[in-house]
Design a protein around this nucleic acid. Structure first.
Lengths: 189, 189
DNA sequence: GAGATATTAGGACGGATGTCCGAATTAATT
DNA sequence: AATTAATTCGGACATCCGTCCTAATATCTC
């Protein structure tokens, strides 16, 4: 009896399938096969497709919160932290694009499904809060940003990452686009 | 015989359905019903689901290229043009969110499908070129941006619009997030 | 008006999908 | 060892999907 083991294998398989082919192109049978498990096991452990997807999303959320928190803990000045964040994103897009695709894909799913909406909404909220607290609360940046609330600036930074990220993914053999990520640092110069 | 009329009705119905429910949640039968047309008509005019979706995407692309070009034609200075662009996006998100959702949705589709990829890749490319030429080629902004190519800055601006836009959509009853769009103008101050 | 062409209509098809159920097997409890 | 509970397995189900085919109807050409 390997309960948690088995359910973890299913979860990992779901993560892999969705980040590789997109949620709309993955069936429960695909996931079962990838996990080396019989179809009905998915319902035994997760109840429904929605239940399984929810767990995959939570898994993804944990990764983002953890990794971005780490990135924002490096460096001292706001400028340094911003560079660390940019480098994290560049590395993510280059070496682990599946994780970014997962975020994009599920965010799209969250546009149409209210049950997934709150999960993704909270993630963007948490991430922008993290940026706000770890970068923008820092000392005397206030001068440059006097017209905009720290919250708004944090949201914009996060959005710029996300929005340039998808352009990198779309045109993945055009490395030049990665430079656009660097350009976000303009606001600290 | 109302050939073009009929195919236009199908196209409009497809546009409406997809921008309302998302491409993954729309069937050809939904579109046929919305258009008041029999199912087989869709294949008669567009050959396949992919053919129909392609036309919807092209329709969307035309709207974006036209409207953003208009927005960038208003104002003289780079600062003014940037404000005009921001205001266009704010208006879009508030009064025509379906058009933005369509862009987000199809961009996601383009991540997984090579046949749609080139369409969306070109759109982002064209839009960033437009921003580059109409805003950034302007006079002596060079000083602030000396470390970054105009192309990269344009991509970042576009990405910031897109990335903050989706946050607005996700949390549509939180009007405060719209301020994040304004914050993009930081780079011109 | 007759014949050719274009359009509309309706239905059938093979296949895929999420869900559910009952039996077989394995582990835990006493 | 016997009973109970948890897990695994295989298959069936109803439904929905994109596509295709044939007949009927309307439109155009001469």
């Amino acid at each position: 009896m390997e309960g948690r083991n088995q359910s973890q294998r299913i979860l990992n398989a779901a993560y892999k399938c969705i980040s590789t082919k997109g949620y709309a192109n993955v069936s429960l049978r695909d996931i079962a096969e990838e996990a080396g498990v019989v179809l009905s096991q998915l319902h035994y452990y997760f109840g429904s497709k929605e239940g399984l997807f929810t767990e995959v999303i939570k898994m993804m959320i944990d990764k983002y919160l953890k990794e971005i928190n780490e990135a924002l803990s490096m460096g001292e000045t706001a400028k340094d932290k911003m560079l660390s964040l940019v480098n994290f994103f560049k590395d993510l897009l280059k070496n682990n694009p599946g994780l970014f695709k997962l975020l994009y894909d599920f965010t799209g799913l969250a546009m149409w499904s209210s049950s997934f909406n709150s999960l993704l909404k909270d993630l963007f909220n948490d991430l922008s809060k993290m940026i706000e607290e770890k970068i923008l609360s820092n000392s005397a940046l206030g001068e440059n940003f006097r017209n905009y609330s720290p919250r708004a600036v944090a949201r914009m930074i996060l959005g710029a990452m996300f929005g340039t990220g998808i352009q990198v993914i779309l045109d993945s053999n055009e490395n030049e686009i990665l430079d656009a990520l660097n350009a976000i640092q303009i606001i600290f110069e």
